[in-house]
Simulated scan of single mutants.
Amino acid sequence: MPKIELSRVQGDFGFEATDEYGHTVKMDSSPESGGENFGVRPMQMLLMGLAGCSAIDVIAILKKQRQEIKDYKMVVNGDRETGKEPSLWQNITIEFHLYGIIDQDKAVKAAELSLGKYCSVAATLEKAGAKINWSVIIHPA
């Protein structure tokens, strides 16, 4: 079972989370909520996790299909519910930017497989009610 340790390291809400391998992430609340911009907001980290999870899937699928990926970027935006506590992610949009000699249909299928089948973060967010919309943009090498 994965283990995370969290320690307060700055101000009231400046935390550092460490996994069992020693990797660390800094988190904080917004300045409006008493934070000091020490790190990522925990809800933003969910979007980062979604991007990382899906990126691993998409690249692995395309590599198996012998696609030539020179670079890879994603843009993830999200809107949260307003006037509710907790305020969950409601709408998430993802742009997959793939650079190289990549077949558009294969890239679209890889993204579809990631978000619809393999990415546990996407499944978790969708079960909580988030709608995920996405697009694939190929940038030729």
Rank of each mutant, 00 (worst) to 15 (best):
P2E: 09
K3P: 13
L6F: 13
L6T: 15
L6S: 14
L6N: 10
S7T: 15
R8E: 08
G11D: 02
G11M: 04
G14K: 01
T18E: 07
H23M: 10
T24E: 06
M27N: 05
S29L: 13
S30C: 09
S30Y: 13
P31E: 03
G35K: 00
E36W: 11
N37E: 14
F38C: 09
M43L: 08
M43I: 12
Q44N: 13
M45W: 08
M45V: 13
M48I: 14
G49T: 03
I56S: 08
I56Y: 08
D57N: 01
I61S: 02
K63F: 09
K63H: 08
R66A: 07
E68I: 15
Y72P: 05
M74Q: 06
V75D: 15
E81I: 10
E81C: 07
K84E: 12
K84L: 14
K84P: 15
K84T: 15
S87D: 11
L88C: 07
T93G: 10
T93R: 07
T93L: 07
F96I: 10
L98C: 04
Y99H: 12
G100S: 04
I102H: 04
I102A: 05
V108E: 10
A111Q: 01
E112Y: 06
L113V: 13
L115I: 02
G116H: 01
S120E: 03
S120G: 09
A122P: 03
A123E: 05
E126L: 04
E126Q: 08
A128K: 04
A130W: 00
K131T: 14
N133D: 15
N133T: 15
I137P: 15
P140S: 00
